[in-house]
Amino acid sequence: MVGHTGSGKTTLAQVMAALLPPTGGKVRLWDSEWTYPRELPLELRRRIGFVFQFPEHQFFAETVFDEVAYAVRNFGLDNVEGRVRAALETVGLPFMQFKDRSPFSLSGGEKRKVALASVIVFDPDVLVLDEPSAGLDGESKVEFWNWLWRYRARGKTVVFITHWLEEAARSDKVIVLSAGHVLFYDDPVKVFSHASTMKRIGLEPPLAAEVVYELQKKGTFPWVLDLDKLLEALEEYALWP
């Protein structure tokens, strides 16, 4: 999900996760409909994971273990220790080394990982993330995105808000929001081909897309978004020595 600041990304994400009542329309989650102010039943709540922007601001427990175990206990799931261990290892934090530390004493990157572990610990079918990589350094960002793609590979749906369009380009579908409306909801290739519109609403397209725009002005060139495919296409069209 991409869009300029104030375009409604966070609002839409929270409505999706039945955390915010819609002012119009309906929220349908699988076979049931969510009507505010009815609380979402726990068994449905369990299927949706929501990661807020700066999720480490919601820490409260004395140890990393308790922080991550919070949701497991709330949802009344079995095998608390096994789940916490698996979640921590998934985000790359050795269980024995971290379980007894205070979540407040960790580094920024580690905090973010614990926050993510505290959500994936209940294995939600849909994971919604509000700018999950904000405030992370370059290396942590790459590590994080790799991890997110692995989670998706487990057959999960991942919805995320980002300002980094290179990453948006790797998704199956891109939602472009502008001033509270969905402007596009389509394959990334199709979305980013609307070059002028994207630029008009202040979104800088991925690097590969920029190159393709320029080449298409000169002649026929296929629409590609990632660098590898761009290189292949350049070779194919004999534009690459």
Partner: peptide, 13 residues
């Protein structure tokens, strides 16, 4: 408000 929502997402009732 944000904190309540975040904990609700983690199963707080």
């Amino acid at each position: 408000d944000r904190i309540v929502k975040a904990q609700k997402a983690r199963g707080l009732t």
